[in-house]
Design a protein around this nucleic acid. Sequence first.
DNA 1: GTTCTAGAAC
DNA 2: GTTCTAGAAC
Length: 205
Amino acid sequence: APNERRGRPVLSGHFEHALLDILDNLGKHRSSVLLEDKRCVVIYDGFPKARYHSLVLPKEKIMSIHDLKRSNLEVLRHMHEIAVKLTKHLRQDSGCEELSFRIGYHSIPSLKLLHLHVISTDFDSPCLKNKKHWNSFQPPFFIDSGMLMEDLERNGKISINKEQALQWLKDDMISHRTEEKMKNIPALKDHLARCKKPVCTGKVY
DNA sequence: GTTCTAGAAC
DNA sequence: GTTCTAGAAC
């Protein structure tokens, strides 16, 4: 059939617009929305890479970190504030004082529309399947929200060395709790399930 | 962003 | 032989 390729569905060709579609059709996507206010929307990540994984989207259509200007700092600060509040609520609800989160942006996002990740540091999820998934939530590829705002304030823009960022995704997987090298995904999963040490790389909230 | 699978790694 | 990764998808 023309619409199929070896039984695999043809690509929509517009996966990168998924967040824009949610923002433009909030009514249709009510079940994805966790919080909403005048300036932003918080949604559940469609393929969560941890027990808690949400995205803060600005209602203003800032397409990516590369488009950021100093004039966007206000909405970035607001998104950050919402993200921090969310971590506090989730920690309270979970009853687990040790529940920690990373809050930040990917150096090279796959989806259009700026999105701030709020992700718990357990990284316990069947959707976390490969090295890129792991490395994309670890520094330096994962840019802490506070660091990004400082960078923008200082330089008036966010500049990313794409070649270097792509290399970071291919680097060895390093534990965020012990800084040990993980030999493969199954070894990482085993480590994540067992290791109870606090996170020692990057900023946590 | 994901799925799928060839072939590398073990 | 089985596990695991990494790149194509028109």
